[in-house]
Computed example of a mutant assay.
Amino acid sequence: MTVLYAEDDENDVFFMRRAFSKLGMRTALHVVSNGRAAVDCLDGTGEFADRVRHPLPSLLILDVKMPAMSGLEVLQWTRAQPEFNHLPIVVFTSSTQYADLAFSREHRASAYVVKPANLEQLPLLVHAMLDAVAAPRPGDVALDFPQNLLRPD
C-alpha cells in the first residue's frame, strides 16, 4: 500500500512517519508539503512524472490548512477527476469547524479525522485508518473506524 500525506507542518510529518514506523507495516509513506504538490503527484506531472518513484497512492491523507492549495481544494480537485472516484481520502486536521466537515462530506471525503492531542495515540489511529482502507467497501462509503466523523451513525 502506498500512502500520500500532504502536510506542511514538519512536526506533524515527523510524528506521522514515527507512527508508520512503529506499526512496522509494509506501507510506503510519501510526503508532500503543500496541496499543489499533492495534485502534481496525483496527476503525475513535473517531478512526479516517474511512477516508479512516485506511484499512485492507495490512500490520500490531507491536512486542511496548507500553502499553495488547501487540503479542501485538493479534495475538490481529486473528486472532479473520474480516475480518483474510489481513492480513499482522509481529511486529517486540527480543524473542528463545521464548515470544513460539511465541505468534506459534500465532496465525498472517505474520512474526516481531528488530529489527536495525545500523539501516542497516532499509531493506533493510523492502524485503524489502514485497516479500514484494506476492508472491502461498497461504493463510496465512508471508511469505518471510530475516529471518522463522517461515519454513518
Rank of each mutant, 00 (worst) to 15 (best):
F14A: 00
F14V: 03
F14W: 03
F15R: 00
M16G: 00
R17D: 00
A19F: 01
F20G: 00
F20W: 01
F20T: 04
S21Y: 02
S21K: 08
S21E: 11
L23I: 07
G24I: 10
G24V: 10
M25Y: 09
M25W: 12
M25G: 00
M25T: 11
R26W: 03
T27W: 15
T27F: 08
T27E: 13
T27P: 01
A28G: 14
A28C: 11
L29G: 02
V31H: 07
N34R: 07
N34A: 03
R36F: 05
R36P: 00
A38R: 08
V39Y: 01
V39H: 03
C41H: 15
C41S: 13
L42P: 03
D43R: 14
G44D: 08
G44I: 14
G44V: 14
T45F: 12
E47C: 06
F48E: 03
D50V: 13
R51D: 06
R51T: 13
V52K: 14
V52Q: 14
H54N: 12
P57E: 10
S58I: 12
S58F: 11
L59N: 09
L60Y: 14
L60S: 12
I61Q: 12
D63C: 08
D63F: 11
M66K: 07
P67K: 09
P67Y: 10
A68P: 00
A68D: 08
M69S: 01
M69V: 06
G71E: 04
G71N: 06
G71P: 02
L72F: 06
L72E: 00
L72R: 02
V74S: 02
Q76W: 01
W77I: 09
W77R: 05
T78Q: 09
A80Q: 10
A80H: 08
P82M: 07
E83L: 08
E83S: 10
F84Y: 15
F84C: 04
N85Y: 09
N85C: 06
N85Q: 11
H86F: 12
L87C: 07
L87K: 12
L87N: 08
P88A: 07
P88F: 13
P88C: 07
P88G: 06
I89N: 06
I89F: 09
V91H: 05
F92T: 09
S94W: 05
T96G: 07
Y98F: 04
Y98M: 05
Y98N: 05
L101W: 11
L101Y: 07
A102L: 05
R105N: 07
E106R: 09
E106W: 02
H107I: 08
H107E: 03
R108W: 09
S110T: 14
A111R: 08
A111I: 14
A111L: 11
Y112M: 04
Y112F: 15
V113L: 09
V113P: 02
V113T: 15
V114E: 03
V114Q: 03
V114I: 15
A117E: 11
A117R: 12
N118H: 10
L119C: 00
P123F: 02
L125E: 05
V126Q: 00
V126K: 00
V126W: 01
H127A: 03
H127K: 06
A128H: 02
M129H: 06
A135C: 08
A135P: 01
A135Q: 15
P136R: 13
R137E: 07
R137D: 05
D140I: 13
D140L: 12
D140E: 11
V141T: 15
V141D: 09
V141Q: 14
A142W: 08
L143S: 03
F145N: 00
